[in-house]
């Protein structure tokens, strides 16, 4: 039985029920931005995010019905039509599992592209074409862990992106190169420079 005050996600886990998550991270504040974890709570007008909604006694909750699966599938389709998920195997698995078809929006659907990978410091690189805006890096850099406040946002809506103060290179920001952001990034948008260089070099390396 779920402990009082547990989220639907926690309760489901302890009951052996899987609910997919994308933005959620066990050690970070849940902001419930991706909405992949939504479930149907009978009596609620909208679906509710399992990673933050607290379970209540006698609640009737469907974690995998048609309505829930449609929402998850459409979110995944829209995401994959926007962002480069080639280094996000967990998202690839979800796309397959939900039968998501990212091509349905056409080959001219706008993608979020940010130009060349940002290589501006010795420790890590930033490849924002792969960024899904899960907010984890911003959170670890701010109140969730580091209180460094090097990372923030540009734009809004579809044009939101992760940014530094006036887009300055990392060494010119408050960044202390703790690497926490790289550690929590789920898609390869942030990765160690050595790993990046190795991957870059691989195709032309000695056979």
């Amino acid at each position: 039985m779920a402990s009082p005050g547990a989220t639907i996600l926690e309760a489901a886990r302890s009951a052996g029920i899987t609910i997919p998550t994308v933005c959620y991270h066990d050690h970070l504040t849940a902001n419930a931005v991706c909405r992949i974890c939504v479930v149907e709570w009978m009596g609620s007008r909208t679906l509710v995010p399992a990673c933050v909604a607290k379970i209540q006694p006698n609640a009737r909750i469907y974690t995998d019905n048609e309505r829930v699966r449609t929402a998850r599938r459409v979110i995944l389709e829209m995401l994959a039509a926007t962002v480069d998920l080639s280094e996000a195997p967990e998202l690839q698995t979800l796309l397959a599992e939900y039968g998501a078809d990212p091509h349905r929006f056409g080959s001219d659907a706008a993608r979020r592209e940010h130009g060349p990978v940002k290589v501006d410091n010795p420790f890590y690189v930033r490849d924002y074409d792969k960024c899904i805006l899960c907010w984890r890096c911003v959170q670890v850099c701010a109140e969730d862990v580091q209180f460094t406040f090097a990372l923030g946002f540009n734009g809004r809506g579809f044009e939101t992106s992760i940014a530094t103060f006036f887009d300055r290179p990392m060494p010119e920001t408050t960044c202390v190169f703790c690497g926490n952001c790289v550690g929590v990034c789920p898609t390869g948008a942030l990765k160690g420079k050595r790993e990046y260089l190795a991957a870059q070099g691989a195709p032309i390396g000695p056979r």
Binding site: V33, C34, R35, I75, A110, R156, G157, F158, T160
Partner: peptide, 17 residues
């Protein structure tokens, strides 16, 4: 599309599509 804040995926992506 112009006014979505961009916080949650359904609206951030859906208003564009």
């Amino acid at each position: 599309r112009h006014e979505s804040c961009g916080k949650c995926y359904p609206c951030q992506l859906g208003t564009q599509r």
